[in-house]
Simulated assay, not measured.
Amino acid sequence: MADARGGRRSRMAAGALLFVLERAQRGRESISQEVPDGWICLQPVVLPGDEVAVIENFVPEAELTRGVKESWAVMAFLAVGLIAGSVLVTDRLGSKVVRSSRRLAQASRALGQGDLDTRVEPMGPTELRDAGVAFNAMAHRMTELLAVERELVADQGRSCCLDLTQEPTAVALSDDDVAAVVDALIGNVFRHTPAGAPFGIRVMRTAQAVELVVEDGGPGIPDPDRAPSRGSSTGSTGLGLDIAQRAASATGGTMRITRGPLGGAHITVTFTLAPPAPSGHRSRISRHRGR
């Protein structure tokens, strides 16, 4: 019985193959057909006399799947290797970027706190290396300017009297804004008094305020009541007295201009003390210079 069924399948397969051969010959088309134990590929070829011959190529089932598993294994191994390599390279690049950014931030904080010798080693991506080079150039330029300013002060032969309170005196201004006021007032002394004229700086704390006094031995300020408004009326917010007055007003304080014991201007800027609670937003004052 089994032999009979096998014979019938063989005859059916032979009949199907014959049908496909005739179709390929008559239609002159390439045909691929699955047959028992494999595949056949039929390729018609036109001969002289318009006769058609069909080339048959049989591929066993074992040949179709030979090496497929090994190929998939190799491809999977390569995929895992590529992913692992990509993760490693990304991690290394990310670490360099983070390390470079952190060093640049640390150097910036150190420079802001007065360490003019701080420098960074340019490293990381091109943008961070350029930022490092620019930072070093800026720090070097600041050092040069400070040296020039110190030489200028020494050449002018000015005497300076400092009287500073040793008690912490927090006011409702940022450190930059307080520095802007001091810089503007002292800058006025050097720009608007003759060389050699003495000056003094005094900081005093009262129960509710802090007083910053800057005085000089110059010619003084004519019409002191209108001096701050002269700066704002010209459209410039960078005049030194205007900066000091607006800073004092921002804290609820005042500014007074008189003639002092040294014979010149005697400027008293009063800042109201900051409340003991943690301060939030602080007023910002323009840092342009002038008088």
Rank of each mutant, 00 (worst) to 15 (best):
T268G: 07
A247C: 05
Q245Y: 04
D242H: 09
I243F: 00
Q245F: 05
T270D: 06
L239K: 09
A274L: 03
I257V: 10
G231C: 14
R284Y: 13
R284H: 15
T272R: 14
S249Q: 14
R282T: 10
G238H: 13
T237S: 12
G252T: 08
L262S: 04
L241H: 01
G253Q: 01
P275G: 11
T272E: 13
L273R: 09
A274R: 02
S279F: 10
G280L: 10
T272D: 11
S233H: 10
L241K: 01
F271N: 05
T258A: 15
A247G: 01
A247H: 00
A248T: 05
L262C: 06
T258G: 09
D242N: 08
H266L: 13
G231W: 02
H266Y: 15
T254W: 06
A265D: 05
T272F: 02
T258D: 14
T234L: 14
S232R: 15
G235P: 08
G253Y: 04
G235W: 04
G235N: 06
L239Q: 11
G238F: 08
A274M: 04
A250W: 09
S232K: 12
I267R: 02
G260R: 03
S236D: 15
G238M: 10
A277P: 01
A244R: 03
T234P: 06
G238P: 02
S232G: 07
L273C: 08
P278N: 08
V269Y: 03
G253W: 02
